[in-house]
Design a protein around this nucleic acid. Structure first.
Length: 566
RNA sequence: CGGGGGGUGGCGCAGCUUGGUAGCGCGCUUGGUUCGGGACCAAGAGGCCACGGGUUCGAAUCCCGUCUCCCCGACCA
């Protein structure tokens, strides 16, 4: 392709309303253009990258025996109603009516549709296992699209589904996907880790997320550099901080300040760990006290695991406990309220917590002596620097981007939608399912996030829109032009090559070359041509040398296949 | 949905406080000079100042409403 004939609309300035690097670069390099919030057009240059990513995905999925299919995006409500997600998904689902007034939606995911196929077509254990996948557009009316292309309302998803007779068989399909995903991300040039995940709306237990690190990522993960422990922040665990205070008698003290952990620890001049956070929640409409170490926040995910939970309102707290939030605790209450304590609280002594009277706290609280804990559960959101549960080293919290998610659906959908098969004893059983998702846009944006410098993108060669960029510096000099043409023609038979044949000044060409990030550049200019040379260099700066113009094609092909670029 | 910030030639911005001929940089067109890191000169084209109402002799500017985009929180590939 010649640049003069191509649509590669580069931008000199950072577009407005753009925050993170990948968003800015994807627009500046002419890959994408916004249409409405959370919806983007993919221009030819960007689509080439996405197509390369999609091809890698297909290759790796086919390798594990995945069969590609293509399901409709427009789906009737009835299947969603069978599983209850018509309501569960709520406003996030793009719902519409057809001309007969029938409820339809633009599918946000495809468990229902795929299960509908499975229940009709799979009848015997002899039909199992199966892996079906598709690469298709998903629609989710996100509460807030964000981060450029990180959270979209319309996006491409590769989703696959596995069908097995039992958990044992499922495990091997799961492992195959884990392997395939690892290969996909590796080939795209991404560094990633696999963490324990939260399952969200999908349900199911075994669940892992593939994460890349980026300051602009909307997720956080907890990692232990020492033993390799890693988990999504929401579900990560850490040890008791090991801080102990001496035992004292229980005593009510006057604390004439706002009852926050911050204020109380400041007022009493004690560390936050000496405070015990007492929170009143309604779990399945039963009031329950949740106790946490003063320096930790409650994890929403872990809270959700307890049941249908919500924080008690100030009025409810007043009615149930008789004091305001900030001055409450399960100690000395007339009415019994069940109490769950975070595991890290253990049997601590000498703590401070609310005295169930405004402006008063208890000091000297001894958990074993002064209150009855009904259940110890893991409730806390891990803090940076907490001690690793398994090895005791300090944990780090890092921003990350979720690029893939694999999980066990168990028999949730097969049971709800009656997708049964007969096993070898003639017994009717629900199909064991797994669901696996990744998104080409996310991959592309993650790659940009992690493969760029101040001048622009540096594409890993496998997904680069072109592998080589030929830059004739002054297109009006016949020798420069002809040499570039010769190189370009020879190269285009072997690989994808772009030639910047625009009549632009060198500065513009070099700046654009850096911006669009083609991994290999062949620079044809009068200066080196005097010695019969052209320059070949890699965008990442690793290679820059002069070679005979007759040998540059061969050299380029050699470099392309070497390890030098990611 | 709550909170915050925007919408002015294609792009990035100024102008708005204190109403009075719509401006700058980039890009674009034409001609010329340049050509190893966003060149220079000259001449041009291009704007219902998001939209709808008001106030006023007069509104990009003041007031009311609407739409829309971005950021922070509940969601997830």
């Amino acid at each position: 392709m010649k640049w003069s004939k191509a649509l590669i609309p580069t931008l000199k300035e950072k577009p407005k309303n753009v925050e993170n690097v990948s968003h800015s670069l994807s627009i500046r390099a002419g890959l994408v253009r916004p249409l409405v919030s959370g919806v983007y057009s993919y221009l030819p240059f960007g689509w080439k990258v996405l197509s390369n990513i999609i091809n890698i995905i297909k290759e790796e999925m086919n390798k594990i025996g995945g069969q590609e299919l293509f399901l409709p995006a427009l789906t009737p409500s009835e299947f969603w109603k069978e599983t209850g997600r018509w309501d569960e998904y709520g406003k996030e689902m793009f719902k519409l009516k057809d001309r007969k007034n029938r409820d339809m939606c633009l599918a946000p995911t495809h468990e229902e549709v795929i299960t509908e196929i499975a229940r009709k077509e799979i009848t015997s254990y002899k039909d199992l296992p199966q892996i079906w996948y598709q690469i298709q557009t998903k629609f989710r009316d996100e509460i807030r699209p964000r981060g450029g292309l990180f959270r979209l309302r319309q996006f491409i998803m590769k989703d696959s589904y596995s069908f097995d007779t039992d958990d044992e068989m499922f495990k091997s399909n799961y492992a195959l996907h884990r392997e395939a995903y690892s290969n996909i991300f590796k080939r795209c040039g991404l560094d990633f880790i696999i963490v324990k995940a939260s399952s969200g709306l999908m349900g199911g237990s075994l669940s892992e997320e593939f994460m890349t690190f980026s300051e602009d990522g909307e997720d956080t993960v907890v990692v232990c550099e020492k033993c390799g422990y890693k988990a999504n922040h929401e579900v990560a665990v850490s040890r008791n901080n090991g801080v102990n205070f001496s035992d004292e008698p229980l005593e009510k003290i006057h604390t004439p300040i706002e009852g926050s952990i911050e204020k109380v620890s400041g007022f009493l001049k004690v560390p936050k760990t000496k405070l015990m956070k007492s929170l009143l929640y309604l779990i399945d409409e039963e009031p329950i006290f949740l106790l946490l170490d003063g320096e930790h926040e409650l994890s929403d995910e872990k809270l959700g695991n307890l049941g249908n939970a919500r924080a008690a309102t100030p009025d409810e707290i007043k009615t149930i406990v008789g004091a305001s939030s900030g001055y409450i605790s399960p100690i000395g209450l007339k009415t019994k309220i069940r109490t769950f304590a975070d595991t890290a609280l253990g049997s601590k002594k000498g703590l401070i917590t609310g005295a169930n009277e405004d402006m008063y706290h208890f000091k000297g609280v001894n958990i074993e002596r002064d209150l009855k804990v009904d259940k110890y559960v893991d409730l806390k959101l891990v803090n940076d620097g907490d001690k690793c549960e398994s090895c005791g080293a300090s944990l780090n919290i890092k921003h990350s981007i979720e690029i893939g998610h694999i999980f066990n659906l168990g028999v949730k959908y097969s049971t709800l939608m009656k997708a049964f098969f007969l096993d070898n004893t003639g017994e009717k059983k629900p199909i064991v399912m797994g669901s696996y998702g990744t998104s080409p846009e996310r991959i592309m944006m993650s790659v940009i996030e992690t493969h760029q410098d101040k001048d622009g993108i540096i594409w890993p060669s496998e997904i680069a829109p072109y592998k080589v960029l030929v830059i004739p510096l002054n297109i009006e000099k016949p020798e420069v032009k002809n040499t570039a043409e010769t190189i370009w023609s020879a190269l285009r038979e072997k690989t994808e090559v772009l030639m910047d044949d625009r009549d632009e000044s060198v500065g513009v060409k070099f700046k654009d070359a850096s911006l669009i990030g083609i991994p290999l550049q062949i620079i044809v200019g009068e200066r080196s041509l005097k010695n019969g040379n052209v320059e070949i260099k890699s965008r990442d700066g690793a290679i820059s040398k002069n070679v005979k113009k007759e040998e540059v094609v061969e050299e380029a092909l050699k470099l392309m296949n070497s390890e030098f670029i990611n």
